[in-house]
Lab assay of single mutants.
Amino acid sequence: MGFKLLSKLLVYLTASIMAIASPLAFSVDSSGEYPTVSEIPVGEVRLYQIADGVWSHIATQSFDGAVYPSNGLIVRDGDELLLIDTAWGAKNTAALLAEIEKQIGLPVTRAVSTHFHDDRVGGVDVLRAAGVATYASPSTRRLAEVEGNEIPTHSLEGLSSSGDAVRFGPVELFYPGAAHSTDNLIVYVPSASVLYGGCAIYELSRTSAGNVADADLAEWPTSIERIQQHYPEAQFVIPGHGLPGGLDLLKHTTNVVKAHTNRSVVE
């Protein structure tokens, strides 16, 4: 069995187990497998329904001669939608809004960016022009300005110390501490036991640490421990890039980060 097929099978099995364990909360999309990078042309966006009122959005972007996937989250909030992270750029984010209108038909009224990198804030200006209120932590807003990236308009308070959590509509926002970046936030959907790890969490097929220019490698494993301790009931975990899975993604990420750190020390 090929690795790609095995990865998709694991996603399907995880979703099936969740649907059985929580039949009222989960209505997993039966329309197909989780979209992969090879299936999404740059400039297009796919939506994948995880649970009743919960979707991931998947886009792709060219970077350094390669094409990478990027995940975000959409959560229903009454007759409105909360968006977590842009679709990595203005063109993708405009396509995301169009796809949401086509498939869901509810307005996106608020959006949260989970850290300051372009795959999370690139497209904020498109959201703002569409009347979406954009939010991020003060740290993310400051770092985005320093980096020359787009800056969300509103500040999220109460997320300055490791372990801080605040309720934001249908989700809980959690600051686990520094990891992929010093400002990275985690998003949890309690009604569906869905954990969105953003770039602080890796997919299972990833074996290298990737972009760690703004990471705190020493603190990252401790931050992941905080996530595990705060959300032990999480059933569906979405990484910032690639295929979702279960809580095993947290341990896998820790292993990859520690291996990278150990290699760096040896070198």
Rank of each mutant, 00 (worst) to 15 (best):
K91D: 15
I100L: 09
W220S: 00
P107A: 13
V108E: 02
A213E: 13
Q228S: 15
S7I: 11
D79R: 12
L13Q: 06
Y202D: 04
F116V: 03
T261K: 05
S139K: 12
S161W: 14
I201H: 03
C199D: 03
P41A: 09
G2E: 07
R120Y: 01
L5I: 08
T254Q: 09
A94H: 09
G122W: 10
A51W: 09
D248G: 08
P170T: 11
A15G: 07
S38N: 08
Y202M: 07
T207Q: 12
R167K: 08
G131Q: 10
F116R: 06
V11A: 07
V171D: 02
P23Q: 07
K4G: 04
W55M: 03
S22I: 15
G177H: 00
C199N: 01
P152H: 04
L247N: 05
P107S: 13
Y48P: 05
G246F: 05
L185Y: 02
A133R: 12
T182W: 14
G158S: 14
A21P: 11
Y188C: 02
L82W: 11
L73D: 02
V265I: 06
S264E: 09
T93S: 11
V194M: 06
V45A: 11
E80R: 12
N92S: 13
P244N: 04
H252Y: 04
H57Q: 12
A144E: 03
V28R: 10
G65R: 09
I17R: 05
E267D: 15
A259P: 07
L250I: 08
L106P: 04
H57C: 01
G2W: 07
S181M: 01
R206T: 07
S205K: 09
K4L: 04
G72H: 00
D183N: 04
E157N: 15
E150M: 11
S30E: 07
Q103I: 13
F3M: 06
A133V: 11
I17S: 05
P107L: 08
S56L: 12
L185A: 02
A178E: 10
V132P: 01
S31K: 14
P23E: 07
T140K: 04
L159R: 01
E150Q: 10
P221W: 06
S56Q: 05
G72D: 03
P107T: 12
P239G: 04
D214V: 10
I74V: 11
S155L: 12
V11I: 05
E33L: 12
I20W: 07
H154F: 15
S27E: 09
T36Y: 12
L143V: 08
E44R: 11
L6N: 08
T222D: 12
T222C: 05
A66Y: 14
G158T: 11
P23Y: 09
V54S: 04
L47A: 05
A200R: 02
S113P: 04
G53V: 13
G89A: 02
V194C: 00
K4H: 06
G245Y: 03
T86A: 14
V11H: 05
L204C: 04
S56P: 05
P35L: 08
L247D: 05
D183S: 01
I58E: 10
A234V: 10
Q49I: 05
R120L: 01
A215Q: 05
A94C: 13
G210L: 05
Y196R: 00
V124D: 03
S181L: 01
V237T: 06
V45G: 03
S160Y: 11
K91S: 13
S181V: 05
F168K: 03
V194D: 01
V54G: 02
E233I: 13
H241R: 02
V126C: 05
A66E: 10
G131E: 07
S70Q: 04
A179D: 03
K251L: 07
I201M: 10
E80D: 13
D77F: 10
V187G: 05
E225C: 05
S56G: 10
